[in-house]
Design a protein around this nucleic acid. Sequence first.
DNA 1: GATGAATGAGTGTTCATTCAT
DNA 2: CATGAATGAACACTCATTCAT
Lengths: 219, 219, 219, 219
Amino acid sequence: MPKVGMQPIRRQQLIEATLQAVDQVGLGDASIALIARLAGVSNGIISHYFQDKNGLIAATMSYVMKMLGEGVNVRREALQEDTPRAHLLAIIEGNFDASQVNGPAMKTWLAFWASSMHQPSLHRLQRINDHRLYSNLCCQFRRVLPLYHARKAARGLAALIDGLWLRGALSGDGFDTEQAIRIACEYMDLQLAKQHNLPPQAAEEPPATLALKAGMRGG
Amino acid sequence: MPKVGMQPIRRQQLIEATLQAVDQVGLGDASIALIARLAGVSNGIISHYFQDKNGLIAATMSYVMKMLGEGVNVRREALQEDTPRAHLLAIIEGNFDASQVNGPAMKTWLAFWASSMHQPSLHRLQRINDHRLYSNLCCQFRRVLPLYHARKAARGLAALIDGLWLRGALSGDGFDTEQAIRIACEYMDLQLAKQHNLPPQAAEEPPATLALKAGMRGG
Amino acid sequence: MPKVGMQPIRRQQLIEATLQAVDQVGLGDASIALIARLAGVSNGIISHYFQDKNGLIAATMSYVMKMLGEGVNVRREALQEDTPRAHLLAIIEGNFDASQVNGPAMKTWLAFWASSMHQPSLHRLQRINDHRLYSNLCCQFRRVLPLYHARKAARGLAALIDGLWLRGALSGDGFDTEQAIRIACEYMDLQLAKQHNLPPQAAEEPPATLALKAGMRGG
Amino acid sequence: MPKVGMQPIRRQQLIEATLQAVDQVGLGDASIALIARLAGVSNGIISHYFQDKNGLIAATMSYVMKMLGEGVNVRREALQEDTPRAHLLAIIEGNFDASQVNGPAMKTWLAFWASSMHQPSLHRLQRINDHRLYSNLCCQFRRVLPLYHARKAARGLAALIDGLWLRGALSGDGFDTEQAIRIACEYMDLQLAKQHNLPPQAAEEPPATLALKAGMRGG
DNA sequence: GATGAATGAGTGTTCATTCAT
DNA sequence: CATGAATGAACACTCATTCAT
């Protein structure tokens, strides 16, 4: 039993116990005592490696987000072709990776979202993650669509991915990953198809009235 | 101070205080004492009108869901024309009604979803609500699309609506209702447009392989 | 068992239990649980009547200070003659009243002083009390002595009273009240005797150099 | 980094860190972890040099008391004349030495007194210190006063010194050392002046009745 | 000699719930 | 109907101490 250099081991151990606890009883009832018991360590060790319970939860959230990012990146780096469609598909599939559609992850995400409405530190994490998805999508759409349409397509696809994930998570049945991916892909293809339909002169700018309204919120 | 017929008044008073408390501190920290204080009544009275805290929360959730249903129904009943598009638009707009995009409602929905993963009674409420949106959308799509495509369109639009709402709620900035509606409408129109593109003979059935897979999860 | 109007009864009950607990184990080890047990009530009741442990302790300190004030005032109101010496004697005797030289009071005072160095609310209480003794003494000396000498006499007698009390409390043996009073009285009489010895012209002002230095600290 | 002969260095390092911790947060909140951090060493080392926390605290108290003793002795050894008044003055000034009127020392003394009421080992230390002051004073007064009066003078001056120190420490403002010394000196001189006023035959014995009472408590 | 990982009992506090009034 | 007094278990967190390295 090593007595030095335990920090990374214990941290991971405790993060996984937290996911397990959230899966079993929810974030609200995931007490320090339960998490410690699941990790097979004493209560006090948590404040030794994380400042307090919030620290542990934030670390757990960061870990789940890191898993999501990796699920996407692994797929993108393995791509044979560098087309926007291939990248978008990788992003979609990464969002429905096995690491994201299991019980602990789904319950943790939902609890995270609810908590982020009241905890500034979690809210910041959440915004970074939200923006990452949008930004990745927008970047790929931008390669074939004018800015305004790329933004709208990215916003729509990000929302569709999150919505499909949300409804899948809440359904309580097994998550039908394939169906979700199929619906998201269809949306992606419908948006990509616009590159052939848009009139060249209107391509860079939205219709005036819409542009104004959208512009008010930075659209 | 009337001593009879107080029940509906007090119940509504307490439900609104609960929404206020959740808005202020989150569901986890919305204690009986805080809710009672916000409602201007004593602690003990809550168990008099609701069995316990869970009863109050379930009633609050039902109330928010009822508001959502009314937001949709009012719009549908006011329709001038009975086209599927008009109904779908009413459903979309109802989901972004003012009653659903304010702080208390958004925070309550998020907390509701997180809790529903662990509380069977809330999970039941949640499934009914989810199914209602899907069912309403599917019913309208079905008037112009074959069953398989109607289902997919309904699933997609339901997810898109929820996803747009979710991302709007989590953003922390003001909710850009118009943009959300615009994106959802575009999706609706793209789906409705299929009625002219589908080959007549394939209309009622999806390709065999997909049908099988989808059917396995009750598609 | 009355269920309303318990506040003053419970508060007094808890204050006395606090004194008892401090007497038994010291302020540092006087836990909420011990105090509640000594009072014969539940742990939770303390936060119902006092905001928290600090609230209870502050209330206890106020109570001990009030007792001291009353011990002095009762004696002063019972005086047959209105001479400065009679008042000063009453103040001295009041400070060695039975309510101040018992175990619980002595231990509470000592703990109070130590805590007041780090808790602003207790420090404020402490300063009020300290100033009251000085002020009462100074007021009486002032009737027969010029200002400067009255102030010095008051400062000296206040310190002597506190010092006699302190050394008595710390001795661990029984408190020799009579001896303490005798020593304080002698000091009082030596100071009062100055009224016949002071040269008339120097009476109102101290020697210049001393006045300057003393004045720098508000002397 | 030497590995031998560290004991006195480490002990002094830890004692000074303890004084610093007590100054910052009070004895009650001066945890081992804080003291170790202030000393720049690890938690575990404290039990290596002191048996436990009590050992460290007792050593710290002894150190402060030693400083007081040295503050007095240095002054007495530097005296030009061997008169009682010179010695008494040195004792008074030593008690208001810079080593005794700074924040760490004042807070430590107050905490020490409070703790000594409940910890026999500290109580013993405290009694030794108290007796030393009395004994030193009494010894000098005895050179010019009969026993009974010397004792009373010593008791009074000891109490006045402690009381002046106490009120200065508690005031929270800067400690007006000069004023305290002036008041104590005046008392000393008033007592010394008795050597010329006492009737020779009554010099060695107090009045009978008082002697009896005082004797009962070891007067 | 020195570290810091690990423990687990103990702390103040919160809270849903009950119930006499 | 309505109050608020009272409970006691549960909570996050602290901390002195131990001990393998």
